[in-house]
């Protein structure tokens, strides 16, 4: 493995991610697991794993890896005491995505409980951004909760949705009310696939409204855990009439951006 020069960690509401990069900013190692409510313990475990894979590094518990800068992002960033600096998800996602794709555009990141749309300029700078309202509507949680209610495993959600030939309208964007609406539709004998497609449509429309609220810069890019659901990019393309670009590691863009910032800031001067 190439030498690790910087680390980035993204403590999200659903998953925690860590990325290690070399001196050229290439991603050389990453780690992803379900977010633990005890953030400090999880970060400790991540950093110990880094040391295990790279015995030449020295990790000081609670402090960090000697000589390796760490930038933390995500809603739990302030709890990462080992971090050299905390930076918001907006800046980190823009940074990671710009490096990964090599151009600006409009990035839609749909996370577990948080969605954001970021306008990235031609030099990788944040031009504008928008975040979801004070509830989980328009986030992965919306689909997760309703999929649970329908008894569809998350991994099959996209596939079942795309197999639908029809679609019913789900009027509510509120996760709780949508669940009641779904129960009512099932009681009326509506099949599963049209309901799922309607739920996805509801989420996509919410996201499109957010995209419309920022100054759109082409192309449209997508990241976040929800991208693993294949129905999301397909339906977003359909709704926006715009090709959607997805990076190789859509869930890691925040952590990758954090690592890149760490490298830029603390790169040794020769």
């Amino acid at each position: 493995m190439a030498e690790i020069r910087a680390l980035g960690i993204d403590v999200g509401s659903t998953t925690a991610k860590m990325v290690a990069i070399d001196g050229w900013g290439n991603m050389i190692w990453h780690f992803l697991e379900q977010a633990d409510p005890r953030v400090d313990e999880q970060v400790e475990w991540f950093l110990l794993s880094v040391q295990e894979a790279n015995p030449e590094l020295t990790y000081y518990p609670g402090k960090g890896v000697e000589g390796i800068p760490l930038v933390a992002t995500g809603y739990g960033r302030k709890l990462v005491q080992q971090a050299t600096r905390q930076v918001t998800e907006i800046t980190c996602h823009a940074r990671g995505m710009y490096r990964e794709m090599g151009h600006g555009g409009t990035l839609v990141d749909i996370g577990g409980q948080d969605s954001k749309v970021i306008g990235i300029g031609p030099k990788g700078e944040v031009v504008d951004f928008s975040m979801n309202d004070k509830c989980a509507a328009g986030t992965g949680r919306f689909l997760e909760d309703t999929a649970n209610r329908l008894g569809v495993p998350l991994v099959r959600l996209g596939e079942v949705t795309l197999s639908a030939s029809e679609e019913v309208s789900i009027s509510s964007t509120c996760t709780v009310f949508a669940e009641s609406e779904v129960v009512s539709l099932i009681a009326h004998g509506v099949p599963l696939q049209p309901i799922l497609k309607g739920l996805h449509r509801s989420l996509i429309k919410r996201i499109v409204a957010m995209i419309r609220s920022v100054s759109f810069i082409s192309p449209l890019m997508l990241s976040g855990g929800v991208v693993r659901n294949p129905a999301i990019p397909v339906m977003l393309e359909d709704e926006m009439n715009e090709k959607v670009i997805v990076p190789k590691f859509p869930q890691l863009m925040g952590a990758y951006g954090a690592a890149l910032i760490a490298l830029e800031l603390y790169e040794p001067k020769f």
Binding site: T88, E125, M131
Partner: peptide, 16 residues
């Protein structure tokens, strides 16, 4: 006033 959300937006704006 949702403290965490407001703080996050303000911090992102400041970075911007």
């Amino acid at each position: 006033f949702s403290e965490e959300q407001i703080a996050n937006r303000l911090a992102a704006f400041v970075e911007m």
